Amino acid sequence: MPAKKTAKAATATTLGALGIDPYKEKRGEEYMNENQEAHFKAILEAWKKQLMEEVDRTVSHMKDEAANFPDPVDRASQEEEFSLELRTRDRERKLLKKIGKSITSIDEQDYGYCESCGVEIGIRRLEARPTATLCIDCKTLDEIKEKHLNR
């Protein structure tokens, strides 16, 4: 059974993939100050750029690899590969919308606060999930409600 990732490990993995160091909070620092907002905006912009590069690679790959194979099995295999890539890009398209909303939220100085109860979401949670809009307690309640409704 694989070990469960800690929030710290997940944060390091997410930020490391983007080439950004975790935020180092200073003693007595106000939550979501200019430095923190700039940090999260950099994370979101880097993530957005990375996703857009993936879109460009997918388009190039599909153009370059598109072939009309005479063998139906080869053709079906290629179509399945393209279908998988397109589904992935569709999920990323939705993620790009969330990233855009998060960037707007930073610009409006609403970023980092729970949409449901208004408390601070927290630096580490936001580093692990930069598009988070709910604090961990509200997100947990939301998931419990969803689980009970989908029974």
Rank of each mutant, 00 (worst) to 15 (best):
31 Y>M: 04
136 I>Q: 04
125 R>G: 05
97 K>Y: 00
88 T>K: 14
98 K>D: 03
17 A>V: 07
52 M>R: 06
83 S>E: 09
35 N>L: 07
126 L>E: 04
77 S>A: 14
145 K>G: 15
46 A>L: 02
141 L>R: 14
58 T>Y: 12
112 G>E: 03
51 L>S: 00
70 P>M: 10
41 K>A: 10
7 A>R: 10
39 H>C: 06
131 T>S: 01
68 N>H: 12
23 Y>H: 02
23 Y>S: 03
102 S>A: 11
114 C>G: 07
76 A>H: 11
95 L>E: 05
27 R>S: 11
107 D>T: 09
81 E>P: 07
62 M>W: 05
98 K>F: 00
16 G>N: 01
37 E>K: 11
69 F>H: 07
59 V>M: 08
129 R>E: 08
19 G>D: 03
56 D>H: 12
91 R>S: 13
104 T>K: 14
63 K>P: 15
38 A>F: 02
110 D>M: 12
25 E>H: 15
26 K>S: 09
124 R>I: 06
122 G>S: 07
14 T>H: 09
4 K>Q: 11
9 A>W: 03
47 W>E: 05
1 M>S: 08
123 I>G: 01
35 N>P: 12
99 I>H: 00
10 A>D: 08
35 N>S: 11
24 K>F: 10
48 K>R: 07
2 P>Q: 04
142 D>K: 10
